[in-house]
Amino acid sequence: MNDLLVADSVSKNFGNFKALNQVSIAVPKGSIFGLLGPNGAGKTTLIRIINQITMPDEGNVLLDGQPLKPEHIKDIGYLPEERGLYKSMKVGEQCLYLAQLKGLGKAEAKSRLKYWFEKLEIGDWWNKKIQELSKGQAQKIQFIVTVLHQPKLLIFDEPFSGFDPINANLIKDEILQLRDEGATVIFSTHRMESVEELCDHIALIHKSNKVLDGKLNDIKRQYKTNTFEVGLQSNNSDAVLTEIKNKFEVLPATFRNLNDDIKLNIKINENTSSNDLLTFLTSKAEVHHFVEVIPSANDIFIQTVKNN
């Protein structure tokens, strides 16, 4: 079994509203899995099913090959999008309480908390009440509570909201480190640049259906259009341009560069290799810029959602 979590044809209805329709995903062990989709697509419902907050109407979910059961709660760490902490409780007490609810012993929880508090440099918060902390500070506590019991599966729903760029980076590094230490991460967000940075796999849910999933690189390969960004310099640019346009499909380009005369997106057909194009270009002008256009997660997201 290489997949830590498998959801098999999961459906869920709320009254007449179908929140999930036969959605299947497989989250490989040790990966960061991006669960994407527009607002109201059904991501949160799927996450809640994985957390056993609600049950699917159809289909089943396997964790480590076993159907989900209450004991699995300690194997999952969940940071919901809708999150908060007991406001009048002290930070330390609260962390201990939540850790114990996840099945940790008190002494164990204490020593791990000490480690995390030192790591995130918040040791002096232990006796503060949550209401004395800022939103970002409370988010840090929330993050610690989520990962403290060292679950196999971590589920983060918009983990960076409320963080300044420095702390967001800090949390991002922690997530990557947790992944390196063997945790599997499901990551739900609307911030495509963090998907780009973090995710190995993605699945895209749209209008209750899964419309796309796989390795991010594979998907990008699938979505690439054999287009190259090209920047050229030549004394005779008009002639060169005409020549290129006769041979290839040319689109306007918008990349930023210093002083190239010709900026183009050139699309080649499948029979032509990038080397062919490059050879052709070098024979005509001086090549300053030659990059394959890789579709961003953002492009893929928008394109997929629009097409469906």
Partner: peptide, 17 residues
């Protein structure tokens, strides 16, 4: 009502019945 007003409900409910 406390869990709802402090928005901790989903964290709690994913840990306990």
């Amino acid at each position: 009502i406390e869990e709802k007003t402090s928005r901790i409900i989903e964290v709690i409910i994913s840990s306990v019945k």
